[in-house]
Design a protein around this nucleic acid. Structure first.
Length: 713
RNA sequence: GGGAGAUUAGCUCAGUUGGUAGAGCAACUCAUUUACACUGAGAAGGUCACAGGUUCAAGUCCUGUAUCUCCCACCA
């Protein structure tokens, strides 16, 4: 027997060595496994893309859970003989990365991005990305992820850049991308537009002021933002409201603070007569609702707030921050005796997810993806949409799931998905930052050129904006497989089999992938969506810096071994629900790794004598069948529990105890141990492989990772 | 305002199609040169939030109530 079994199992002496063994074998790449004759060339494909972690980030418990779940499925399907591909990659995290680099430069050199210029800043960002990406990549390795590194992709690399340009141009040519002046969510702090999904609402105390524009104005209005009223061009009332009906159509000229206003009274059914005074002061340029009312009634849209959230009007409010202007307007209303009421209310305020800045709705010229425009889908493999038929992006996204082509595990998530689609507005895809995929549009006087590369001829200026980072992420399942080229990889591995990610990016990413894959390839991007929950601490609290309850997966891995971290993240975690992790829990599974180690020590001390006992074999095979079934049904926490319970409390506590001093048990013990290692391998790959490598086997396969799954012919 | 989910042992949670309530941790008793103390054996602990209903049978299905959580939404 190998002497190492005389000491407890040591993850730190094992893991790096075992990972090298796997990686150097080349078998993370399914093509190599086929070449070596370990997987049939005609085997069914099983492919997953790794949700690319932030290239400059570090691994946290959420990504550790993601890697664990995905690696379990990849190893399971690989052992079941499928042509299994897991594509790794990293994401540029555009806004966050640019902000980080800008901050560093500001701190170290006192320079802003404008001092460096666009080219200069991008160079600095590239070198920062280069120097920091090794951290996350080695951490992914450390978790035991059996990804095919030869297919590594980065959202900003050459191939992905081409795919993004191509996608933009194709969607533009289909008429789905347009440029329009519309109200967008402007983040004054980040100095960029953000999408609806990047907004988080915070409940705050606010004041609802009720007043009249002037003594002569007949209708009082209510607002929480008096400062915007200098941009009003109308008052909207419900068309049937008896109080105000007579005023509809009338127009008033008046002076508000020191600004001249021309107010028209309009009737609009969107107005709720029950709320406030039942009359709405319409500020078209600074409110989504008001913009729409203005569109319907052809009202002028006067911009009174600029990109820095300061007043852009003439007079004494000019240049003031909106908050200051608000106080000034309220003071003026009081002085003039126009203020009728001041109510305290709770208000949901829109803030930017990334910067925390208060979102200011502003009209801006931006690029949009049209969700409701009909277009012809030339080639379609999506059930319910025939090739060459007319559809809209919205309908297509809905059909992809409704038809069952994509299964979103968890009924509640399906409902959420459909609900989101119902309420979907056009997607604003342009961003005013420098780091990202620059919009492939060039202007020259009245000319506009849209193409994957710059037009010939002089005098063209490229659009300064870049694309929303989710635009490129949405292409991920096929941009990583070589699209827009018609590659062998695309034919073999797309649609991918499974997408596993956190439920918090169902809309950002999962839905958008369905959109892009459908629009550009006529395929769904994946067949099954597995959404995992948040990882919380032992008390069920969100892990956060301020609580100081951060449990670092790398620390835990160093302390208890990666296998222990992986399986403790899986245990008790039903799909789609939040899970808990604590140091005690991880320690418990370190003990389990050692338990198997000692079981092996005992079994290796026995002769492989006697026949395999039928009753014990049948019992084991039944367990193996159940575990297989659990994995197939995405109940991996149940499978993990069963193998754990069987190995510790059945095999070790009962079968081994019973076998002591009885030679005829030998062959049976070896049978159970070997097959238990196979079942446990996806969950705890390091310790199982290490044990496997230390034993002799009849199998000619080179390693446990490439063994066949129990009961699988 | 709309939607979804949760409520099971002291704590954290499982419980697959309805068929005698489960695990881990904690606490209790005992064992101990044992493959393994990173151990084993045993005992204790629950009106499955509450109230109805369906059923031979309900933690599980239905209705309602309470509390909590999350998501979505342009009530100014």
């Amino acid at each position: 027997m190998n002497e190492k079994f005389l000491k407890p199992y040591s993850p730190e002496e094992t893991e790096a060595r075992i990972y090298s063994l796997w990686e150097e074998s080349g078998f993370f790449n399914p093509d190599k496994a086929v070449e070596a004759g370990l997987i049939s060339p005609t085997a069914e494909a099983f492919s997953i893309v790794l949700p690319p972690p932030n290239v400059t980030g570090v691994l946290h418990m959420g990504s550790a859970l993601m890697l664990a779940v995905e690696d379990i499925y990849v190893r399971f399907e690989r052992m079941r003989g499928k042509r299994t591909l897991w594509i790794p990659g990293t994401d540029s995290a555009a806004i966050a990365t640019q902000a980080r680099v800008e901050k560093d430069i500001q701190k170290a050199e006192g320079k802003s991005r404008h001092d460096l210029g666009r080219e200069g800043l991008l160079k600095r960002i590239d070198s920062f990305v280069d120097s920091s990406k090794s951290t996350i990549l080695s951490q992914v390795r450390g978790m035991g992820a059996s990804v095919d590194w030869s297919r590594y992709a980065y959202t900003m690399d050459e191939k992905r850049y081409r795919a993004v340009m191509e996608a933009f141009v194709r969607l533009y040519n289909k008429g789905l991308i347009y440029r329009g002046n519309r109200i967008v969510n402007w983040d004054p702090k980040g100095q960029t537009t953000i999408s609806d999904d990047e907004i988080v609402y915070e409940e705050r105390d606010a004041k609802l002021y009720t007043f009249k524009y002037s003594k002569d104005f007949p209708i009082p209005i209510s607002t929480t933002r008096p400062e915007t009223k200098v941009g009003d061009t109308a008052v909207a009332v419900h068309p049937d409201d008896p109080r105000y009906k007579e005023f509809i159509g009338q127009e008033f000229d008046l002076t508000f603070v020191d600004v001249q206003l021309h107010i028209k009274v309009v009737g609009d059914k969107e107005v709720d007569p029950e709320f406030g005074t039942g009359a709405l002061g319409v500020t078209p340029a600074h409110s989504h609702t008001d913009w729409e009312i203005a569109e319907r009634h052809d009202l002028p849209k006067i911009s009174v707030i600029n990109e820095y959230a300061k007043m852009s009007v003439e007079g004494k409010l000019g240049g003031k921050k909106v908050i200051e202007a608000r106080e000034e307007v309220v003071a003026w209303l009081k002085d003039e005796g126009l203020l009728e009421k001041e109510d305290s209310i709770k208000q949901n305020i829109s803030t930017a997810e990334r910067t925390g800045g208060i979102v200011e709705p502003l009209p801006k010229l931006q690029w949009f993806l049209n969700m409701n425009k009909e277009f012809v889908l030339d080639h379609s493999e999506i059930p319910g949409i025939a090739s060459g038929s007319t559809t809209t992006l919205k309908k297509m996204m809905s059909t992809a799931v409704d038809s069952g082509a994509v299964t979103i595990l968890g009924e509640n998530f399906q409902k959420t998905y459909f609900h989101w689609i119902d309420n979907l507005r056009d997607w604003c895809i342009s961003r005013q930052i420098w780091f990202g995929h620059r919009i492939p549009v060039w202007y020259k006087d009245d000319e506009i050129f849209v193409g994957v590369s710059a037009p010939e001829g002089k005098g063209f200026e490229q659009d300064p904006d870049v694309l929303d980072t989710w635009f490129s992420s949405a292409l991920w399942t096929f941009s990583t497989l070589g699209w827009p080229n018609d590659t062998e990889d695309l034919r073999t591995y797309h649609p991918t089999a499974l997408l596993e990610t956190g439920y918090d990016i169902l809309f950002f990413w999962v839905a958008r992938m369905i959109l892009m894959s459908g629009a550009l390839m006529g395929q769904v991007p994946f067949k099954t969506v597995y959404l995992h929950g948040l990882v919380r601490d032992g008390q069920g609290r969100k892990i956060s810096k301020s609580l100081g309850n951060n449990i670092d997966p790398l620390d835990m891995s160093a302390k208890f071994g990666t296998d222990a971290v992986r399986i403790s993240l899986i245990m008790g975690m039903a799909q789609g629900t939040d899970s808990k992790i604590s140091e005690d829990k991880i320690r418990g599974y370190k003990n389990f790794a050692n338990k198997i180690w000692n079981i092996t020590r005992f079994v290796l001390s026995q002769e492989k004598s006697g026949e395999i006992k039928t009753d014990l074999k049948d019992e084991f095979d039944a367990i193996a069948k159940e575990i297989t079934h659990d994995l197939e049904k995405y109940q991996l926490h149940l499978g993990a529990e069963k193998i754990y319970h069987y190995i510790w409390h059945r095999f070790a506590d009962e079968i081994i105890e019973e076998s002591k001093g009885k030679e005829e048990y030998g062959a049976t013990l070896y049978y159970i141990l070997e097959n238990s290692l196979k079942l446990l391998h996806p969950f705890m790959p390091f310790v199982t492989e290490e044990i496997w490598q230390s034993m002799e086997h009849e199998s000619t396969r080179p390693m446990l990772m490439m063994e066949t799954w129990p009961l699988h012919s």
